[in-house]
Design a protein around this nucleic acid. Sequence first.
DNA 1: TGATATAATGCACACGTGTGCAAACCCGGG
DNA 2: CCCGGGTTTGCACACGTGTGCATTATATCA
Lengths: 346, 346
Amino acid sequence: MGSGSSSHVSIKDIARIAGVSHSTVSRALADSPLVAPATKRRIQRIAREMGYTPSAIARGLVTRRTATIGLVVTTIADPFIAEVVQGIEETALDNGYSVILCDCNAEPERELTCVRTLREKWVDAIIVTSSRVGSLYVPLLEELGIPIVLVNNQRTGEYVYSVRTDNLEGGRLVGEYLLSLGHRRIGYITGPPSASSSRERLEGCRTALQEQGVDIPEEWIAPGDGRIAGGASGIRYLLERSPRPTAVFCYNDMTAIGALQAAREIGLRVPADLSLVGYDDITFAALVDPPLTTVAQDRYMLGRQAMELTLSLLDGQEGVHDIVLRPSLIKRDSCAPPSYREEGEM
Amino acid sequence: MGSGSSSHVSIKDIARIAGVSHSTVSRALADSPLVAPATKRRIQRIAREMGYTPSAIARGLVTRRTATIGLVVTTIADPFIAEVVQGIEETALDNGYSVILCDCNAEPERELTCVRTLREKWVDAIIVTSSRVGSLYVPLLEELGIPIVLVNNQRTGEYVYSVRTDNLEGGRLVGEYLLSLGHRRIGYITGPPSASSSRERLEGCRTALQEQGVDIPEEWIAPGDGRIAGGASGIRYLLERSPRPTAVFCYNDMTAIGALQAAREIGLRVPADLSLVGYDDITFAALVDPPLTTVAQDRYMLGRQAMELTLSLLDGQEGVHDIVLRPSLIKRDSCAPPSYREEGEM
DNA sequence: TGATATAATGCACACGTGTGCAAACCCGGG
DNA sequence: CCCGGGTTTGCACACGTGTGCATTATATCA
C-alpha cells in the first residue's frame, strides 16, 4: 500500500524501481498497446504500490488540456444559481473535469481578475451563469479562443453558446392557465428594468391571452424589482386601478411573495379575492400561505445541459449553439376562478 | 495592444523580440533587482504589448505552488453552505488564489473522486464545508500533507484546522432571552440524530436555564430532523404533553417553520399562545408570519475566516488551530411573554 | 592604467509528463 | 546461419517557467 510519505512520486521514480525508462512507464499507465502486456502489468502494480498519482499540472503543460473549466457566476449566494452550479459541477466531476469557481459579484475589477485567473490557469472552457445581460467581459473571454457557454443568457459570437429556459413558453403557460380558470382581467408585475427575461415572460403571457382576444393594458403592468419590496409596491399600484385585475402574474416568486403579503395587509384574501402566480419555484414558494402557483425551471438540468454541451464542444463537436429547455407550471393554491362579485364590479 | 491572436505567448517569445534570454524576461517580469531598470521597463512594455499572460500551469510545476485551493462541500445547493462558499471564494480571489469546487453530495465514491482530483491538481490547501461529522475521507485528505481547514466541524489532527461558530453560546443566548421574557417551561426540538450541533445548542440553552434553576425535562425534548416535517411532528408531540412548554427552541429555522405551521393548524397563535425560536437566520425566517426570532451565524464571515486561516497557514504561520465565532440573537416577533392563562394552567 | 568589486546577463538544468523516431530485441522462415 | 519483419524499449526533445552558477560588461578605486 501507499508509503504514506507526503512527497509526490513521479513516473521517474517508478521507472527506477521497475528498471525501465520513464517513457515506458508513461505508456504503460496510459494503457498503450506499445508496451508488452507483462511489463505493463508489472509497472501498473508498482505504481499502485508506490501510491502514484499523476500530476495534472505537468500533463496539462504538455497536452495543453487541463481538464478544468472556469465557472463565472454573479453570486453563488443566489439559490437559483447555486442549483445550476450543482448540475454543472456534478456533471463535470462525472466526466473527469473539475470546476474553478469565480464569484465576480458584478464588480468590474473583480470580473477582470476572474478573466485573468482563468487565462493563467489554462481552463479548457468557460461557463457563465450570470443574470445580467450582455456582461461586459464576454468579449474579453471570447479572446481566449475557448468555448464559452452562457446559462439563461443568450448571445451570439464565434465561441459563444447558450443554454436557457424558454421564458416565452413560461409566460404562455401562465396565460393559458389563468384563462382556463376564467380570468379576463390579468395584471403583471415586472422584474428589474434591465431584465429581458421579464419582457419575455410578459410577451409569452400576452400571446396566450390574445388567442382568446384578451389583452393586458399598460395600466395593469406595474414596475417591480424582482424582490419583496417591488412586489408589495407593485400590487398596491395594481389594486388602486379601476377596474382592477382579478389575477396578477409576477416576474418571480420573491415578487409574488411581496405581493401576497401586501395584498393580505390590504385585506384581500388569496386566492378568493385575487389570484397570484410567481416564477422560479424557489423552495419557499411551497411554504408560504397559500402555497404559490408558479413556473418551475429545472435548474439542475440547466446546469447539467450546460456542462454536457461544453463536453461535446471540447470533444470537437459543433452544430448545436442554443439549447432551450421547457419550463413547467406548478399548480398550488394561490389561484382560483375570479369571484363573481369582482366580475360584476367591472 | 494585444494582438488578439488566441495562441499563448510565452516568455521565450518575448525574449526573442527583446533580444535577451528567457531568464532575463522571467526575472524582469518578477520585478527582480537583478535586472537593469531600463531593460526591465523595456521587457515589461513588450510583454504588455504582446498580450502576455503567465502560465500558472508551468509556474506551478516548478514552484510546486498552484495558488489554488480545493473546496469540498456536501451540497452547494444548501443556501447556508453557498454563503460560506461566497466568503471563501471572494477572500481567495482577493489574495490571488482560485478555488476548485467539489460537490461530493455525500456519496462515498464521489468523495474519492474529489480527493483524487484535488491530489492531481496539486491544490495548496483544502477547505471542507461539510455538515456531516467525521467525514470518512478526512484521513485520506490528511495523507496529502497539505493544510485542511474544516468549517463548522471540529476535529483534531496534524494538518487539520477548524473555523466554527459557538453552538453552546447560541443556545445560551436563546435560554437567557426566553428566561428574560418570563418563560419557565421551555421545550426543544432536535435536529437529525447525528448532528452534534443539536446537542451543543441544547446544552448551551440548559446551561443558561440552570443559572435560574430551570431545567428542560426529557419529555419536553422532541426528536426532529432539521426539516419542516420534523418540526411539525416535534411540535405536535410537545403540545400533547401536560403540562406543555410555553416556549420551544428549535434546532434550526426549517424546524421552527414546520412547528409554526403545525401549531397554527392546531389553533395556537404564535407568539400569544406559544413562543418559537429558530436557528440559522435563513432568508425566509424574516418572511414567515410572524417573522421568526432566531440565532444568526455570520456565514460569510465563517468562509472569510476559513480562507484567511488557510492563507496564513500557507504563509508558514502556525499556532491558531481553532477559530470560534460568536453567534447573535435576532429578535423578531415569534416570542412573547407567556400568557397568564398558560401559566395558571400548570 | 590595471586590478578588483559590482552589476547585468546568459547558460544549463529542473519540474513531471507525453511522444516521434531510432535502436534493440525477438521470432520465424528461407 | 542470416535476414526480414514485427514487437518492445529507450533516447531525446517538448511544454513554460524559475533559479544557481558562471560569465561578461560596467563601475570603482588604487
